[in-house]
Design a protein around this nucleic acid. Structure first.
Lengths: 299, 299
DNA sequence: ATCCATCCATAGATATTATCAATAGCTATG
DNA sequence: CATAGCTATTGATAATATCTATGGATGGAT
């Protein structure tokens, strides 16, 4: 497989015609014929069905097409990005699926706004898969937990959170600074089904003989926040999630936390990664410092 | 630029050494040297800084790296996907940014679950950009509105919705089947800031001399739904958004709707696109038919 | 200091091949 | 049947990817 062959291939797809594709590629028509023939030989299938006066893609050709497009696109992007003094334009970000989405999407949105010309693409996955993607170069940077094995990756911790009790500010608990776990027995609770620490929290409750009354289950933090603020129940949440109308209090007997940071390959650190790291580090985690007005509630 | 040169480049990056990279690539060491030299000449920069006993990537090299990785990855993927009878494995989906996210993410999630081996990547954008991406082959399929100009694209309408009044089921309106617009004057309302029809709705209200009292603004449908169900205000919403505790009623004097469907290039229709289209068509739009249990609330 | 091992660059030769011009073969159309 | 429009084949040629052999540079070992 060769790049020039893929260029021929695309030219034929786009002109629908070997001869015109040859013109467009500034080569003779036989050159194109043999080029495609070689490509077909290597792939072991025909790519075009040559009927009289009309050629069309075969199923194999249709399968090749998106790859060919991507490859040619990448070649052009590489040329224009490598040599010039132009800034880097593409951040491929890996995202831990269990991470708190709202705050991270605020970070990514703000970064995108601050660097309007940068293309950001996001892939979600589990921690192990993110590491694999980093190794394979499928992503540039990952937002994930610190990897256990040392493997050529740099880690910069960004955020750390503890799980606390979310209550409406109008609740009688709101004036207190620490809630004994035992007082939560039989109270109405919301369950954040997507939270990866939820099982640990449930265990902690059970060990203390406390059984909350689960009123709702949801896999979305916004919904949970809105329902807590509307007074439908309490909820254990990362202290970084917050909203007007909600107070977060530590619970005596619960000390569960997580931390998350940026991961990238040491050898492949570049301007863009550095700039994203700096942005993320200085990006306020707590809502009063967060710049994303769209996520704020307004009267 | 040539594929073999990029392979050499990657081999050097991964071995950190010309000689070992040559072994790994089954060529002689001078072959590698001249290959890289040529690549450097074409790109107009050096890619490696050759210090004694130690080579490292230059900034230009670091910029090239992700492109090179993508290109080689795509070449391999193309080979393994084109010839064999293997099913297609990658769906590049374009998503209209103003589309109702919740329902669409349910569709995509369900499709991903049903075809566990398929990689799905999503790009969001405005309608015009989605069309451009389709043309450039950056996405396979787009979920968007019907394009105005005929341009080699197929369109299959999937969903159509009208904007209706969302109220809590406990509300006094709930027993009625049609609400006159005039009755909404001065009532508490939520504003869905991200909704692209919101300005048209606001105009309709204003034309009728009705001025609702905006209590909250949010850019997230879940939050809006939760707040309506908690009784904090009413909201104009697509009738496809629904949740327990919420009723949707038509408003007399408001007849605003939208429709959305799949877009793809006629000439590039393939197994995967067909299968996604069939899945999307048969995927229940209304919640009682939707298969995604994660999005449902449970007591 | 000297020698040696390691590593990358250069030179010249060779086999491969991308390309070309010319032409043959095919198929609709008038 | 002739013609126009298209792709495939052929044989020649220029370009080049690769090879072996060698030079030059550097750092560690004796």
């Amino acid at each position: 497989m060769d790049i020039y062959q893929l260029r021929y291939f695309l030219a034929i797809v786009e002109t629908g015609n070997f001869s015109r594709a040859a013109e467009r590629s500034f080569v003779s028509q036989p050159t194109l014929s043999t080029g495609i023939k070689k490509l077909e030989a290597e792939l072991g299938t025909t790519l075009f069905s040559r009927e009289a006066r009309k050629i069309s893609l075969t199923e194999a050709g249709r399968r090749l097409l998106p790859h060919a497009r991507t490859i040619i696109y990448e070649c052009n992007a590489a040329k224009s990005e490598v040599s010039r003094r132009s800034p880097l334009r593409r951040l491929q970000l890996g995202l831990l699926r269990t991470a708190p989405t709202q705050r991270i999407s605020a970070l990514v949105n703000d970064f995108a706004k601050a660097h309007g010309d940068i293309q950001i693409s996001i892939k979600e996955g589990a921690a192990a898969q993110l590491q694999r993607w980093l190794d394979e170069g499928r992503v540039n940077v990952a937002l994930s937990i610190r990897p256990e094995t040392e493997s050529g990756l740099s880690f910069a911790r960004l955020y750390r959170w503890k799980y606390m009790l979310a209550i409406p500010t109008s609740h009688s608990f709101a004036s207190r600074s620490l809630i004994p776990l035992a007082e939560l027995d039989r109270l109405d609770f919301l369950h954040r089904t997507h939270c990866e620490a939820e099982s640990e929290l449930t265990r902690a409750f059970a060990n203390a003989g406390v059984s909350p009354n689960i009123v709702f289950r949801t896999d979305q933090d916004d919904k949970a926040l809105a329902l807590v603020s509307a007074g439908l129940g309490l909820c254990m949440m990362p202290d970084i999630l917050s909203a007007p109308g909600i107070a977060l209090l530590p619970v005596d007997g619960i000390n569960i936390g997580r931390s998350i940071g940026l991961l990238w390959r040491k050898t492949e650190e570049n301007d863009l990664i550095r700039s994203f790291q700096m942005f993320a580090t200085s990006h306020g985690w707590y809502p009063e410092r967060s710049g994303n007005k769209n996520l704020a509630w307004a009267r």
